[in-house]
């Protein structure tokens, strides 16, 4: 779209940023050392870094998911695609293949999965939730076929470095997530892709009648989502030095959708912000980390998380925005 957009979007981002800050402060309240950072073997070490590092896979998924949701779709298969990509990467790594081959193979598989989803949605006109459900269910089976039902472990230095190394003190997954989000945000905003995606999401018929190549745009959105899932899968596999077809990325599609929603993109498609989805992903992880640090019994995890999410969504809801209009100088939307 335009250069002006990111700057114009800043005031609109306030609820997300505020939410993130509040969750961090809540963590600080339950765990006073939350903001402590130190250097450990050349990488920063501390709970804040854990939030970013552990949140990176969901953040990466959320980048692709944002585009898909903006087209009024949804990609339920990303968790399964993570498992497939992880399985492919681990199998090749265990086989001693060089890193470029591993990366190319895993990312290609992810792209292929995404294009498959795109094909079902764009060409065959299957509802996104159904179309991607197919791969969500079969994908894990495919991953199990690749690993032959085992946890494939590896000692491949190159692949381990994907999640295990650091750049400027930041863990590599964080660097990857930020770079990816920046790259995709630039891609959609400095080209017309963003406008076309939003336009299709709001009204696909009208966009098609205006000459927009809806099919290619949808294919691109699902393709990017598949690619992001593969990248997240690579990081997950690299992190535990193995591919666990049963558990890798399990339920992460839901976290990714939630991240996008917290980021303010409507499930009905249209306006989106990749950077705010990223914030959404880190909000979710900050809650997870906070719960782990708090020392509450694990039986409370889901209740605490659900309560926090309800609060966040209520605060960000259109009704609350209208309410704020009474107090603030500027009402929400015109």
């Amino acid at each position: 779209m335009t250069l002006a957009r990111p700057f114009r979007a800043l005031p609109a981002a306030t609820p997300q940023i505020l939410t993130f800050v509040l969750v961090l402060l809540a963590n600080w309240a339950v765990f006073p050392d939350f903001f402590d950072l130190r250097l450990q073997d050349g990488r920063l070490f501390g709970s804040l870094i854990d939030v970013l590092n552990r949140g990176a896979p969901v953040a990466i998924l959320a980048v692709g998911m944002t585009l898909v949701i903006a087209t009024k779709g949804v990609d339920l298969s990303v968790g399964a695609v993570m498992a497939i990509a992880g399985a492919v990467a681990a199998t090749l790594a265990a086989d001693g293949q060089p890193l470029p081959v591993i990366l190319a193979a895993a990312l290609s598989v992810g792209l292929l999965c995404g294009l498959w989803n795109g094909l079902l949605v764009a060409i065959l006109d299957i509802q996104p939730i159904i179309a991607t459900l197919i791969l969500m269910v079969t994908g894990r089976g495919i991953a199990q076929l690749v690993t032959e039902g085992q946890i494939v472990t590896f000692t491949h230095e190159g692949l381990i470095a994907v999640a295990g190394s650091a750049l400027l003190g930041l863990p590599m997954p964080v660097v990857i997530a930020l770079a990816l989000a920046g790259a995709v945000a630039a891609l959609v905003r400095f080209t017309a892709l963003g406008l076309l995606i939003e336009s299709i999401g709001v009204n696909r018929t009208a966009s098609t009648y205006a000459g927009v190549d809806s099919r290619s745009v949808l294919l691109a959105a699902y393709g990017v989502s598949g690619l992001c899932a593969a990248l997240a899968g690579l990081i997950a596999a690299s992190d535990i030095r193995g591919a666990d077809a049963n558990n890798a990325g399990l339920w992460l599609e839901l976290d990714a959708i939630l991240a996008v929603v917290i980021g303010g993109t409507s499930l009905f498609g249209g306006r989106f912000s990749i950077l705010l989805s990223l914030v959404g992903a880190f909000v979710i992880q900050a809650m997870n980390t906070g719960i782990l640090l708090s020392g509450y019994p694990p039986e409370m995890n889901l209740i605490v998380k659900a309560t926090a999410i309800v609060l966040i969504l209520v605060v960000q809801s259109p009704a609350a925005t209208r309410l704020k209009g009474f107090f603030g100088p500027k009402g929400g939307r015109p």
Binding site: D33, D50, R54, A236, I240, N288, T289, L292, L293
Partner: peptide, 14 residues
């Protein structure tokens, strides 16, 4: 493994 690692990280911090 993934969750084991994540939880252990938080234990260490805590």
């Amino acid at each position: 493994r993934t969750k084991g690692k994540e939880v252990m990280e938080s234990f260490i911090k805590a």
